[in-house]
Design a protein around this nucleic acid. Structure first.
Length: 352
DNA sequence: GAAGCGTGGGA
DNA sequence: TTCCCACGCTT
């Protein structure tokens, strides 16, 4: 197939242009897996310090499996998608208990871990073990739709399956032609993603520096700006929250989100959702003591399709209030940094 | 303000 | 079984 002719120039380009990223200096499947989970949701620049801190504190499966949940969650604070970090610890415990602590070595075994799907399974198997498993992420989709000139939306199932079939063929071709001591399944998969990240960017791609420019249909037909076809986005919903910093003798009250909830295990200041158009009278009826509180700040915080507005009030009390219905702790401001807070509440804490 | 991004749970 | 969307933060 003609598409196979992209493999050689791509590998050559990658050998010269690959970024020196910390997780590229290891083939430890645990380290690769940690980096892949972090990279699913966050850009490289942000992930680097998180990955380095994580690997220092939890250098292997055993360390992660045996760590306290608080420790693990704290290491993830600020990355978002917190169910993934809980899945990672579940996976580590599963490896400890069911696999004798040894990371699974095949695609089915890796994909059986919670939080690992087709992409991450293929990434770990190709990058850590150099197995010729294909991977398709946003970068690969962009590179291939452009090179091949696919104008239909890659969200459509048959289109996506076609892209998986292309990469599957390409990674096997890359391995078939590899020289001894080369790691071409690893290099090919990373090269596709690296090209998407550095050259074949979503906007303003650097076609002039692309090793595939002579083979790219989108470039030839002047469709680089319209391929891949964008999906229409769901409308955002506005939500409004009222929260309190209850300050008693220099300590503030924080509560832990229960397991099963969004952001389970994270801490936050007491807060409630109120209707978007609630005014002071409505809030008074809800028994919220706004009268004695001063507005500290308003945090606008976007989460997936929600535009959240969090109004935080400062309430100073001289007697320790009985907050029987709220399960939480009084912490001094100096110690608030030790608690994993959700992003919006971390912003609030920074204003204190 | 819009776009980007894998997995998994529920429709 | 297949499809849709929640999940969170950054640029």
């Amino acid at each position: 197939m003609r598409l196979r002719s992209i493999v050689a120039p791509l590998l050559k380009w990658f050998a010269k242009n690959a970024r020196d990223l910390p997780w590229r200096r290891t083939r430890d499947p645990y380290a690769v897996w940690v980096s892949e989970i972090m990279l699913q949701q966050t850009q490289v620049k942000t992930v680097i310090p998180y990955w380095e801190r994580w690997m220092k504190r939890l250098p292997d499966i055993t360390a992660l499996a045996n760590a306290r949940e608080d420790t693990v969650i704290k290491l993830w604070e600020g990355l978002g998608y917190y169910s993934r970090v809980r899945n990672m610890q579940k996976a580590a415990r599963l490896i400890r208990d069911e696999h004798g602590g040894r990371f699974p070595r095949d695609l089915a075994g890796v994909m059986a871990l919670p939080g690992v799907g087709r992409y991450t399974g293929g990434a770990v198997c190709s990058i850590a073990f150099n197995q010729s498993e294909p991977i398709v992420d946003g970068n690969v989709i962009r590179v291939l739709t452009r090179v091949v000139g696919i104008e239909e939306s890659p969200k459509a199932k048959p289109v996506l399956e076609k892209i998986w079939a292309f990469t599957d063929d390409l990674v096997k071709h890359a391995v078939a032609r590899q020289q001894p001591r080369q790691r071409n399944a690893s290099a090919f998969n990373q090269a596709m993603m690296e090209l998407g990240a550095l050259v074949c960017r979503p906007r303003n791609p650097l076609c002039g520096g692309c090793p595939l420019q002579g083979r790219c249909t989108a470039r030839k037909e002047n469709k680089v700006e319209t391929i891949p076809a964008l999906a229409k986005r769901a409308a955002a919903t506005k939500r409004r929250f009222i929260g309190f910093i209850i300050n008693w003798r220099g300590k503030v009250f924080v509560q832990r989100r229960p397991s099963g909830d969004v952001n389970a295990g994270f801490w936050e200041f007491p807060n409630w959702e109120v209707s978007a158009d609630a005014d002071a009278a409505h809030l008074a009826k809800a028994n919220l003591p706004l009268g004695q509180a001063e507005l500290l700040c308003v945090i606008n915080h976007s989460v997936t399709r929600y535009r959240n507005r969090l109004e935080m009030f400062l309430l100073r009390v001289s007697r320790k209030p009985r907050l029987a219905k709220l399960h939480g702790e009084w912490v001094s401001l100096a110690k608030i940094d030790k608690f994993p807070l959700t992003a919006a509440h971390r912003k609030v804490a920074k204003r204190l």
